[in-house]
Write a protein that binds this DNA or RNA. Structure first.
Length: 476
RNA sequence: CGGGGAAUGGCGCAGUUUGGCAGCGCGCACGGUUUGGGACCGUGAGGUCCCGGGUUCAAAUCCCGGUUCCCCGACCA
């Protein structure tokens, strides 16, 4: 009586099943939009809070900007408008009257923030400006999928302005590192940091960096981006400052974002045929207590012990839930596995008598993951177990990814490799090369990883000598 | 936006070919027996058959138009 399609049978269907059955999200009555339900939102909040902490720790502040952007703003940066106009939602009527100037619903906020920065920045003393915004944006996508690609999506967008390119470049890399650390340390998702190829970079950026992850079906997911905008937006919006030498100079700006797509990554990287497997650090419920009893007198004794364990765990800072629903234990075991709760505490009459509990871990399914331990010191034991599970999930994901990346040196090898994983291939950073490979293999240039083994190769398409290899894979 | 599939109670589906009482499993409510890996019996609630038109004595079923979802392509966080 499985509620889920198996991953091997149909990964895409499995993904949708998990989202529904684990109560993460529901479809909204609007094309391509989803409703995030409390359990899913709680997971997003946990991820968001960790990321927000990292932003604050690197000197950034949060602020809010309008969701409506005058069309003329988007038109000011040529590449930017070219990239985004096909997916804009535009408001033409307000208060029952035709608007003089249509307003785009923000697809991203570089332009309106650039406009504001131009007013705020006058002197080198005003720099750097380090602002982040948590908001939602709208992009009219043709093909949508919960969390991975929705018409409206929630994310954060950081926007900074600096006096020199040296500073702005540092910022771009700093935030890429923040994303990679968040993915690794909190979401247990190993990522590869890299530079986007010319054809894949953000509309209006000089260069774009991303973190790329491998999902459970060996497809790639771009999980966050960090852009070096050069002086493009500073020029378009007149973001200038008076330097120490009393000359006016253009600022250098950056932008960087991570969306709730990362939540999709957590599902697809860790999930198994029983459902979600959540890393303890971000799990809405870290431990669930399942009481087991046959009759009223057993119930009284078991519930008393369960309550006491609940209080202890909670006071030790563990996000714990006591499942007192009128369901059989077996049902609850499966239910919480589906929802990805990392640790399960089972307590029955025998445990009450022995002063023990049965401890089950989600990352090791079935009875293999179960052990019987004393109630004394349970909170400490569970806290340690969280760390084991957290690092275990990361390790599993890393092993899986590394086992599915092949270094190739010919086009034929690349074609074969991307049928079942990633390929690391020497290529020229040339849109024509990207396009040809995509056309013929369906795989795209994910990035030129920052960590490169030094060497000289021949581009597998053009035969030209190259010093870098790029990661290719089929992508979401 | 192009090609293919689908939409029937909360979920999964049958019924559509050949028009004729809207059904099944799970879930839900209540009562009882159960409870250490998805319990069982009984009773019951729950439906604009995706939406809008049309044909017909009669439409879930046939015709026209639209919407949404899934899969495959082109665009993207």
């Amino acid at each position: 009586m499985a509620k889920l399609t198996s991953r091997t049978q149909d990964f895409s269907e499995w993904y949708l099943d998990v989202i529904r059955e684990a109560d993460l999200a529901d479809y909204a009555p609007v094309r391509g939009c989803i409703v995030v339900k409390p359990y899913g939102w709680s997971l997003y909040e946990n991820m968001r809070d960790f990321l927000d902490r990292r932003f604050k720790d690197t000197g950034h502040s949060n602020a809010a900007f309008p969701m409506f952007i005058p069309m003329s703003f988007l038109n000011r940066e040529a590449q930017h408008v070219k990239g985004f106009s096909p997916e804009l939602a535009v408001v033409t009527v307000g208060g029952g009257e035709q608007l003089e100037e249509p307003l785009a619903v923000r697809p991203t906020s570089e332009t309106i923030i650039g406009y504001m920065y131009a007013q705020w920045v006058k002197s080198y003393r005003d720099l750097p400006v380090l602002i982040n915004a948590w908001n939602s944006v709208v992009r009219w996508e043709k093909r949508t999928r919960p969390f991975l690609r929705t018409t409206e999506f929630f994310w954060q967008e950081g926007h900074t302005a600096h006096a020199t390119h040296e500073e702005s470049s540092e910022e771009v890399m700093r935030m890429l590192d923040v994303y990679a650390a968040h993915a690794r340390d909190e979401c247990a998702v190993p990522v590869i940091k890299g530079r986007k190829s010319i054809s894949e970079r953000f509309a209006g950026a000089d260069s774009t960096y991303s973190i790329e992850a491998m999902m459970g079906d060996k497809k790639a997911l771009q999980s966050a981006t960090s852009h070096d905008l050069g002086q493009n937006f500073a020029r378009a919006f007149d973001i200038k400052y008076l330097d120490r030498d009393n000359t006016e100079k253009l600022c250098w700006t950056t932008s960087w974002g991570m969306s709730w797509r990362m939540l999709g990554a957590v599902i697809m990287v860790h999930g198994d045929d029983q459902g979600l497997r959540l890393p303890p650090r971000i799990a809405p419920i870290q431990a669930v207590i399942v009481p087991i009893y046959k009759n009223e007198s057993e119930r009284t004794a078991v519930m008393q012990a369960a309550d006491s364990i609940f209080t202890t765990l909670k006071s030790n800072g563990i996000r714990v839930k006591l499942d007192d629903r009128d369901e059989t234990p077996g049902f609850k075991f499966n239910d919480w596995e589906l929802r990805g709760v990392p640790v399960r505490v089972e307590i029955g009459p025998r445990d009450v008598a022995n002063g023990t509990v049965a401890l089950g871990r989600r990352d090791v399914p079935g009875k293999a993951g179960k052990s019987f331990v004393p109630q004394a010191g349970l909170a400490e034991r569970i806290t340690t177990l969280f760390e084991e599970i957290q690092s275990g999930l990361l390790q599993q994901a890393t092993n899986f990814r590394d086992a599915n990346i092949r270094e190739v040196s010919t086009y034929a090898e690349l074609k074969e490799a991307v049928e079942d994983g990633f390929a690391l291939a020497p290529v020229a950073d040339d849109p024509a090369v990207d396009a040809q490979i995509k056309e013929e293999t369906k795989a795209t240039n994910r990035c030129f990883p920052l960590e490169q083994v030094p060497g000289e190769w021949k581009c597998i398409v053009t035969g030209k000598p190259v010093r870098e290899r790029a990661l290719f894979g089929k992508a979401y």
